[in-house]
Amino acid sequence: MINWPLLRWEMRNIRWWYAGLFIFLFIGAFSLLLFATTGGPVNWGKMDFFLFGAYWALFGGMANVSSKLKKGTMAFLLARPVSRREMYHAMALAGGLPIIILIMSPVLFALILSPWLASSMSLGQLLLLDVLRAVWLTALFLLAILTSLYTGDYRNKFYSILTGSFIIAVTIAWTTTIGIINKRALVQWLFQHHPGLSLLLSLALCCLFYYLGRRRLERMDIQA
């Protein structure tokens, strides 16, 4: 299922994206410290820096997939004893794990800083919020991989641009609905009043996009 040398290789090849992620993590931690010194209660729902970092990772993962298809490195790997499934898992994990880590980091900070920080949420609420965000973003990330598997081919420059803008639109929509800006949005409502249902829905989407993406990679022609 998982080819460890391949996963290491994948992570090594997007290490600059990881560097970018750490910058967002840093800014997030720094702003927390700022809160801690000024002493106001922290509104965890508005810790946007972590979320922006996650979007950064999202585009990184997507760019990684389409550049692999475009530049022919996917063909290079798949001509070696690497199964398509292993390839998919390596791409999803290399790009997806940092997103989850980043999203979960507020809980970590809340734990570490709890003696000094006044929080607007209990730790349990915060954990639930983070898990929900992580699952939603994973679903979004898997959708990004899926669409780049359809459009990343070098012949499809037009579609690549189209998909890029589509993903950006979806992301913005999600940002507003996930409970940061627009409080009346449906997802926000689901999120606050039916957290269990919301979690189930996002998990179902994860599974769907995972299945479709993996199937697409297992069946497609690797050109270049």
Binding site: K71, F76, A79
Partner: peptide
Amino acid sequence: VAVRRRVGYQAESQHFY
């Protein structure tokens, strides 16, 4: 995969990292 374990391949124009 089992086939590719026993096959060496050089592409016409190989694209690398």
